[in-house]
Design a protein around this nucleic acid. Structure first.
Lengths: 162, 162
DNA sequence: TCCGTCCATGGATCGTCTTGATCGCAAAAT
DNA sequence: ATTTTGCGATCAAGACGATCCATGGACGGA
């Protein structure tokens, strides 16, 4: 994993439709070794998958709600079922177990407040939850799937190269 | 926008490397009209872009921190500068303006707590912020870039088809 | 010096994309 | 009832990119 791999990852995170030849040119390699590096990154699982990102507004899923859940002392069974139920909802796009005050945090995506209410009802109908609190996002100022590559350990030192 | 478009979107959200011919087969079309639909969805901006998703652990960015920011009455200038500064950090992968108690919510991705501390210092060094509170995620139970397509308005009624 | 690793280059093959043309069906319009 | 219109199916063909192989050269370490 060196500076060149990092460049490749940076570019593919932005646009995975780039042709290998173009990618190679930008990275400063010829196509064959560039192609091999991509293969390796995929084999190693550094590149997990390639997906299409949709416009939330265009698919009528423009409202984000963060749902904080507190759950004082529950059985292992409950936790298991809780996870399964939550993960099943396509509206739940992120789901974290947290430290501190809140136990679980969900990011839920819906068209509007009415749809969120409906989602909420369906959720608490499928599993009993103690303490729930919802916060609505007014605006999504940044959303990216690009992970920072600054922390990658490269063998050639920490060149913070483009 | 009909049931077939929805199927196409569903599949491309999962895996954008699917060949048009295979996609067409799964959708129940022949390749040419399927290809034309994909083009249209891209022109219309329903499909925003195609990207590679990386494994957070493999790029040393496995820790998620949610940062809640409260900011009692600030100037428009401050808000503008605040947004610019925050968006600039590659560690900030999501950034929302919220309703209710918290004013802004960030999702920050770093390798460990030490790196978060460093990030935090760099942030408050670049802009003065009143009230900040950080919550660490212990576990990422679900993370998907797939938006729910159940709310899409299709002309052929609400067939909740595969 | 010798070896191993990595790159550049060129070429060959193969699959896929992309486009155009034509035909047929079915629903909507007149 | 007939026409129009809007898909989709099918066929065909050229362009393009991915993939793989073989060769030769540069560089650093043992």
């Amino acid at each position: 994993m060196d500076r060149l791999d990092r460049k490749i990852l940076r570019l593919l995170q932005e646009d995975s439709t780039l042709a290998v030849a173009d990618l190679a040119k930008k990275v400063g390699l010829s196509t064959t070794p560039c192609w091999r590096r991509i293969q390796k990154l995929e084999e190693e699982g550094v590149i997990r998958k390639r997906v299409a990102l949709l416009d939330p507004a265009k698919v009528n899923a423009q409202v984000t709600v963060f749902v904080s859940i507190r759950t004082s002392a529950h059985s292992h069974e409950w936790l298991k079922r809780f996870s399964e139920v939550v993960v099943d909802f396509p509206e739940v796009v992120e789901f974290y177990r947290m430290s501190g005050d809140v136990d679980y945090l969900l990011r839920v995506v819906v068209p509007d407040i009415a749809a969120y209410d409906n989602f909420y009802k369906r959720l608490i109908q499928r599993i009993e939850i103690r303490d729930v609190s919802s916060s609505f996002a007014m605006q999504q100022i940044k959303y990216t799937t690009e992970l920072p590559l600054d922390y990658l350990v490269v063998d050639g030192g920490r060149s913070s190269d483009s």
